[in-house]
Amino acid sequence: MPTPLETFESSLQDVESSVKHTTPQSLEATLKTVIERPAVGVQLPFEECSLADLDVALDPTPRALQTAVCGITTAVLGIATYGTLVLEATPTGSELSSLFPDHHIAVLRATDIVPDMETAFDRLSELVAAGRGDHVLATGPSATADMGSLVYGAHGPRTVTVVLVEE
């Protein structure tokens, strides 16, 4: 039996998302290798990593949001069987950073990977009950088939990178 982490990684491959492995200590260095600028984002829940130091606008203006090519946010959950990221829409504008720029980088703790949709919904129900009511289950880049064949990068990001943080 593959572990949820292994399943998640193979699912990510199926949904056109790339993966970077790192640790809290190396997170900043890892991000440095994938960030394109101008970038926008929200503060990550890792003391070891400061996005401001990486020249990421954490409190962007509408203009900065529109011109950013890269957006960095956290993902609260990863769903192994689907390669899905659960992105919380926060008052700090996480939803905007994960949606407007062409490249979305999602930082996810490996311990937040759940095996399946059922487990994910158990967690989501708890979160919503606790007043955290806005989430997007995002699987791969935005896509459309409305123009004659499949195109990645419709209204949302064209590429997705998942940075997996393991202790």
């Binding site: 829409a89 926060t90 008052p91 939803e95 989501l124 919503v128 009511g133 806005d134 989430h135 997007v136 289950l137 995002a138 699987t139 791969g140 880049p141 935005s142 896509a143 949302g156």
Partner: peptide, 11 residues
């Protein structure tokens, strides 16, 4: 690609 679960007014 997206299943949004929004509890509006959104955050």
């Amino acid at each position: 690609s997206y299943v949004s679960l929004f509890t509006p007014p959104v955050e």
